[in-house]
Design a protein around this nucleic acid. Structure first.
Lengths: 195, 195, 195, 195
DNA sequence: GATGAATGAGTCTTCATTCAT
DNA sequence: AATGAATGAAGACTCATTCAT
């Protein structure tokens, strides 16, 4: 990495590896995994075909690493509660909002995650590693159920329903529905989640 | 056409075409569109490669026709209200139940629809034809909003949220969650939808 | 053949075999042999794929028979001198004119012959049978040379040159060259041949 | 590009591309365009199937580039008059001779040109680009007509007739006609051209 | 005779991956 | 590290031909 020295033209900031991941994110999201040739990824990234395979042993590893890195990023943003003293409901709400904000700020990443969630394109090993990244949510939801903030149903019920509703909120927000403000959409989503 | 004589059991009329569609449904759902070779489809269907292309000019048309036929089937089942005198809420509820029943009885079809809903693998023309098949829902939801059965939000909000929640219900049911009976899952889903 | 009875609509005059040959002539000329699927021939002819193979055992035989029949037709027209008492030169001239007239009246056939003359698409057996059809020309040219009507060169020289010049005449005529009347073109061609 | 170092014998620069063109020339001439599989071309050229498509995006482009390159080569040879002070007739004659010499030295190329001249196998765009390559001939022929070297007929008449006669000369020469020496054939051809 | 559904070998082309430079 | 020419297995699709009706 030569980023500490001033390069003549700062074209290689973040480096080829990052460029490849970025191009892959865009293309996988737009075209799908199998419909995206590695040659197109390298071309879009502005590197040679050889370079792609220098950083990633194969296409599968590329999407796996991309998936895992985005999941981690998302988990980090959502779970990053600065005020752990807050009551459970507020923590949940703030977490959901952070997720929505992140999703609006990173639409391709959000789209990528929902597209490749449960997809056979991600290897099983990575799927479960990604799942572990979210174990903390299980605990938080259990508490919410015990405290009566969530209805008295199994955790898995809430896991799925919350995910579905938040995903619907993101879809509505990105649709740019004119008859409903972003705040109204988010508020309505929150209401659907609790109760 | 060989239909002029009464065959004892009309098992093999349009046989191969159906077999191809069935095999394609299974494979597209399991592996994805691009990851499914046409050769595997014809092999699974027990026909030759040529036969597949005799019935469908190309792979794209195959998935398009598959998508449209399933959408139509689903729309037919869901919208088939025998008692139009029923109040709006009951009609909606019964429609949702019919959808869930259909989804449980045809898990691959349900899975296929959710996977290829908004997918670039379905041609735009077919997507919009499929959309038209569901225009009657728009009208029904408008009435529900006017009658106060749905919250006072735009139709598109309810379209998306209902779809997300029903999809969550189906996911839960197919998960075989032991701590929650099918009836309980459905009841909880209905509650989330109305208010 | 049911042509003797009045058919309700005289659509089947000349019969399917003829229709197939006609369609094949047009398509082979326009697209070439290998670029013309038999399915397109039968479709153009308005018959089923099976029917084509009922009349011609395979595609090769189809083009072979087409080639031979056209060669024979052309030979028949060109060699059909009603007045054998005419001097050699007049006979030659009248033969060339008959060839040109036939070529103008049957442009596709003329085009077909020049395209598949020496082409590997015609089987060797048929090529030589077609060649025999024109042995009479060899004799006529020999006489012309002896009589000093043709320059004193081998027969093969005149065979090739006459063919080339007549082919050029046909090309010019079909081009519809405005600066030169059909008669002038033919006259110029004749002059090039003799002398 | 690996040309920076001096290789001892520069035999393999652009090697594969040339080998592919050479194999294609031979096979297209012998078998025809559609009857020549790309797999056979690459096999004959001693490269992999992928390599062919690395240099030529598709089969059509391959034949187009082949056609254009041969036309250009031929035009370059024929039009390369070192002594522009020569009278028109001598220039023409020398050009024709250069064409015949080139045709005898490159029989496959000559055969290829005559086979694919006016063939639907060459794309229209390339046909017209090739045509432009010969515009200088039009001017030369106009001068020959004005000077009375050619008969007083339109340029297109001479274009076609000269081409036909030269093509006949080439055919005779390659036939190896025993009764007529090469010089005699050429002399007779020249006489036919200049009235 | 006539039909057209069915076949599968063969064709063009793509693309993940390697490797010499 | 970086390049991109080279590879060949695999995929979508075509088409001459057959055969049961």
């Amino acid at each position: 990495m030569k980023n500490n020295k001033l390069s003549h033209f700062d074209t290689n900031t973040g480096d080829k590896r990052e460029k490849i991941l970025k191009a892959a994110l865009h293309l996988f999201t737009t075209l799908g995994f199998h419909a995206t040739p590695t040659s197109l990824i390298s071309k879009t990234a502005g590197v040679s075909t050889g370079t792609l395979f220098h950083y990633f042993p194969d296409k599968q590893t590329l999407i796996d690493e991309l998936y895992l890195s985005i999941k981690k990023e998302m988990s980090g943003v959502v779970g990053n509660e600065e005020n752990p003293a807050l009551p459970t409901k507020a923590q949940l709400e703030r977490g959901f909002i952070r997720y929505i904000d992140w999703g609006m700020a990173n639409p391709e990443k959000a789209c990528f995650l929902s597209q490749f969630h449960h997809s056979p394109n991600i290897s099983d090993a990575v799927q479960s590693r990604a799942y572990e990244e979210f174990r903390w949510i299980t605990e938080m939801y259990s508490r919410a159920i015990r405290e009566g903030i969530f209805t008295d149903h199994p955790v898995s019920y809430h896991m799925i329903m919350v995910a579905q509703i938040l995903s619907g909120v993101l879809e509505l927000l990105s649709l740019g529905e004119e008859e409903m403000s972003a705040d109204a959409i988010i508020a309505a989503g929150m209401e659907k989640i609790f109760k």
